[in-house]
């Protein structure tokens, strides 16, 4: 394989209900950094229907170019038509790097594309850097760092001899680039004839999980409860604290498995990665699987009875104490603060 033919950083711009997902914007942000080191450009690939405005928005979010495929078959995600389209784009445009969000769509799509293209794919990356190849220093490779063994170890993986170098990236880990409507709009409408044989499945029904509460990945402040909360009825106090601070509640896996909190609130390796400005961990011991999902938070306050709890290893402020005593008093103090302003 002649690697030098492959140029540019490509980002798959995932859409749902014809809206580009946040993770795509994060990937563009990271893609720009990588492209700068490689002295190349970032191209966002958007597959869908009637998404001209969203294609433009991708440029405002930092993409140098957008390849937009407007096709009925791509409106709602289906594996095979998407794989067909992306494979054509890879063959035609020859990107050297291709990034996907590690979402329920990205983690289905990327493996199939990598298998069809015959290239390497690294899953759920949390770090991406460019480094010269150890054997051929003029060749620059993508170094993909990811957690494995439930977050116990980190591995750095390269794909030296195949192109594109593909990775899925955990949502919430990379920083989005600045939005600016001054950025030039550069959208290529790309035509593909997707054969009918690609459509082997039929979507009978779409049911949305209605979220009444703020998405934990978007929240600036999270009040998180774990096993130490002892029951769902005790979350009311955390809700009150979260409301007072303008945030929302989240939970550890133990609390989700116990049925106290719905799954969409779960932070950690098998839940969501969050990095709010403030993370308050209440009654969470801090298993490595949990820490993997929240340790990038700006500021972490942990309240736990057990002073040997590993959560204190990552907490900026650790309070050894009883959550059922401390949290209500904290609510009192915050209320007083509000009145005094």
């Amino acid at each position: 394989m002649n690697n030098t033919e492959y140029k540019g950083v490509f980002v798959f711009a995932e859409q749902r209900d014809r809206k580009v997902q946040k993770v795509a914007i994060e990937l563009i942000g990271k893609g720009k950094e990588l492209a700068k080191e490689l002295q190349t450009t970032v191209t966002a690939v958007l597959l869908g229907t009637d998404m001209e405005d969203e294609a433009k928005r991708l440029c405002y979010c930092g993409a140098d170019n957008v390849i937009y495929v407007n096709d009925e078959m791509l409106d709602v995600y289906m594996t095979e038509p998407y794989v067909y389209a992306l494979n054509q784009i890879v063959i035609d445009k020859k990107p050297e790097i291709m990034l996907f969000g590690a979402t329920a769509i990205g983690r289905d799509l990327a493996p199939r594309v990598s298998a069809r293209v015959h290239t390497g794919l690294t899953a759920d990356c949390t770090g991406l850097t460019i480094e010269p190849d150890s054997d051929e220093p003029e060749k620059l490779n993508l170094m993909m760092t990811r957690p494995a063994f439930g977050g116990n170890i980190m591995a750095t993986i390269a794909c030296p001899n195949h192109r594109p170098q593909m990775a899925t990236v955990r949502p919430g880990v990379m920083q989005a680039a600045k939005y600016s409507e001054v950025n030039p709009v550069n959208v290529e409408e790309y035509k593909i004839n997707i054969p009918k044989e690609c459509k082997n499945v039929e979507i009978l029904e779409v049911t949305k999980i209605i979220q009444q509460r703020m998405n934990i990945e978007d929240a600036k402040i999270l009040v998180s409860g774990g096993r130490g909360m002892h029951g769902s009825e005790n979350y009311a106090v955390l809700e009150e604290l979260a409301d007072l601070l303008g945030g929302t509640i989240s939970a550890s896996r133990a609390a989700v498995d116990a049925g106290w909190v719905p799954k969409d609130r779960q932070v950690g390796q098998t839940g969501k990665t969050v990095r709010p400005n403030l993370y308050i961990a209440c009654g969470i011991s801090g298993a490595i699987q949990h820490l993997a999902g929240m340790e990038e938070s700006e500021f972490i306050i942990a309240i736990n009875k057990d002073e040997t709890a590993p959560i204190f290893d990552v907490a900026d402020v650790g309070i050894v104490g009883d959550i059922f005593k401390v949290v209500p008093l904290l609510i009192e103090e915050l209320k007083k603060e509000k009145v005094s302003r």
Binding site: V76, T103, A104, I105, V206, K208, I209, Q211, D264
Partner: peptide
């Protein structure tokens, strides 16, 4: 999916 189910 994260926010929905498809019956396929």
């Amino acid at each position: 999916y994260e926010d929905r189910h498809h019956l396929i």
